[in-house]
């Protein structure tokens, strides 16, 4: 095999060293930093985007929290308003009830007074009519004039007796 001819070793080694050192220098100084730069740049960009996404997520969470708080506040305010309105209505109703009861009582007592007066008047008229009737009937029966006052006293006595 030609590979084992020692005469070729020297030129092969010399040129292997020359070319491999050249390749190593080209790779380490020129080619690989270019690739590393873009890969680093990409990694940074991805990291940046991830950080931004995380920040946006936190912001969204804050907004949600604020919204929930606003909702809770509005609910509480509405409930307070409702309670207040309910209390006002209850107070108004109670006031009106009291007023109505008072007016009712007044009107009742007025009506009762009127009824009482009417009753007293009617009773008085009944007595007068009874006296007149008693005096008239007695006059007709006896033919003599009957004293009005005596008739009245008699009616009174009978009424008292029957009562």
């Amino acid at each position: 095999m030609p590979q084992f001819d020692p005469a070729i070793f020297s030129p092969l080694l010399v040129w292997l060293i020359l070319t491999f050192v050249a390749l190593y220098l080209l790779m380490s100084k020129l080619a690989l930093p270019k690739v590393a730069a873009i890969i680093d740049q990409r990694a940074e960009r991805i990291e940046g985007n991830l950080a931004k996404a995380e920040q946006l997520r936190a912001e969204a969470a804050n907004v949600l929290l604020a919204y929930e708080k606003a909702m809770a506040d509005a609910k509480a305010a509405a409930q307070a308003e409702l309670a207040k309105a309910g209390a006002e209505i209850a107070a108004e109703t109670a006031k009106r009830e009291v007023e109505f009861a008072k007016r009712l009582a007044e009107q009742t007592s007025v009506a009762e007074g009127r009824i009482k007066a009417a009753k007293t008047e009617a009773l008085a008229q009944v007595k007068a009519i009874a006296t007149d009737l008693a005096a008239g009937i007695a006059g007709k029966l006896t033919g003599a004039g009957v004293d009005q006052a005596a008739a009245g006293a008699a009616v009174d006595a009978i009424v008292k007796e029957r009562a």
Binding site: A7, I8, S10, P11, L12, V14, W15, L16, L18, T19, F20, A22, L23, L26, M27, L30, A31, L32, K34, V35
Partner: peptide, 25 residues
């Protein structure tokens, strides 16, 4: 005194170095 002749192998090694570098750059 060292035989450093440029041979077909030297040429191919140089070509490989060139191609690899061109490929990446």
């Amino acid at each position: 005194g060292v035989d450093a002749s440029f041979t077909n192998a030297s040429l191919i090694m140089a070509v490989v170095v060139g191609l690899v570098t061109i490929f990446i750059v």
